[in-house]
Design a protein around this nucleic acid. Structure first.
Lengths: 218, 218
DNA sequence: CACGACGATCTTGTATACAAGATGGTTGAC
DNA sequence: GTCAACCATCTTGTATACAAGATCGTCGTG
């Protein structure tokens, strides 16, 4: 047995929550899940604890674990925080970014463009994620980087839905270019604002998000 | 038997890590701790998992749990993020704060002043914490509030050390007043900047922080 | 004398057994 | 007929037992 099983199980359940296999409010039966994963309740409970800490399930004492999908309000709040974290990363990165990292950004952007041309949302998503994570890293603050990545990851399933909307990928691309430009110039405020515009969920984007939520709820 | 014991144990161990009873890198022996708390290894392991998620201990598979005090670099990073979160809270609060909350802030500030006059760092600390938490709440973003409070709590022991320094309380007070003023005027940028100045760790504050770390390490 | 391999022992990871609280249905009284 | 209390059952929380990997000392060899 090479690794801790609880990690694997937690990730698996997380995946199921993300992709909607487990509905909001659903109780996660320990013995059922334990049987399903072929383990005892001990490592499974560890996995549930872990998920509870990330906020994906709610652990009610003596009652069990319940899936806790963020509601519309909480989602908007999380996106707002995400935007602000990106802004902070961008502002710091504008001052601290290296020439090599700028090249990496341009490369990531090129891959984004290729994905847009190929109309491939999945590879666009991964190239886009790389783009952003370079900026997190170049903030020069590992703690900030870790926190930002964690939230990014948590919002991943919702972002992904948004991307499938018409024209979103192309728009996203041009925003990327504005960000890179600002970072090249070392213009912290412009980088910050470009990122804020890029990430913020507001107006029609907000509406779209809510609609996709409705769809996912069925 | 009333509540989940793992919570209580986790909090207890957390306290010990915070106050330095457990040194950095120290291994936390499961059976020893279990005996100490009068429980079996099962709830104790749950507690360790929890602490691992908060970053207070490192869980090395098949090796055990090790206390992981943040080093100087990580601490500075955490304070930088803390400052940015406060800034975000302040900026949002400036737009969203209610008249009642402003009154609460003035009240908290009065308590701070009373603590300064009485030279009572402990009650200053709690009044100060209340002051800041009102701002987090008035950001109108529960998720942001929760995240900010979590980091605030994690940095508490280090903040507390800083407060004992000469003149820090009085200076802190005047900064509070500037913050309240900006919030009253609804001046988001000024509130943000006032908070940044208030929370940022830089210059001699940085030095002091490092020194207090040294002291704690012994 | 130094280095490496082997094994005893200890510690963690997992499974199972047991205890205690929660749920839901049934029964009885009003 | 309705409401409430009680009991059976189920589920979680905790303890203990067992398995597997890691540490460290010892012994043997070069």
């Amino acid at each position: 047995m090479e690794l801790r099983r609880a990690d694997i199980i937690a990730k698996e359940i997380e995946e199921r929550i993300f992709d909607g296999s487990y509905a909001d409010g659903e109780r996660l039966d320990e013995v059922r899940l334990a049987r399903h994963f072929g383990v005892s309740r001990t490592p499974l409970r560890e996995a549930l604890q872990r998920l509870a800490l990330s906020g994906l399930v709610e652990l009610v004492p003596r009652r069990g674990a319940f899936v806790r999908q963020p509601g519309p309000v909480e989602l908007v709040e999380m996106f707002e925080v995400m935007a602000e974290l990106e802004v902070v990363c961008g502002r710091l990165a504008a001052r601290r970014i290296s020439e090599a990292a700028l090249a990496e950004l341009r490369d990531a952007n090129a891959r984004c463009q290729a994905a847009v041309d190929a109309c491939d949302p999945d590879s666009y998503y991964s190239a886009n994620a790389r783009f952003h994570q370079i900026i997190y890293r170049e903030s020069g603050n590992s703690f900030l980087e870790a926190e930002t990545r964690a939230l990014h990851r948590r919002l991943e399933p919702f972002r992904r839905r948004q991307l499938r909307l018409r024209g979103r990928m192309a728009q996203s691309m041009s925003e990327h270019e504005a960000i890179v430009e600002a970072l090249e110039r070392g213009d912290a405020e412009e980088a910050a604002e470009a990122l804020r515009r890029h990430v913020a969920v507001q107006g029609e984007k907000f509406l779209n998000l809510m609609l996709s939520l409705r769809r996912a709820a069925e």
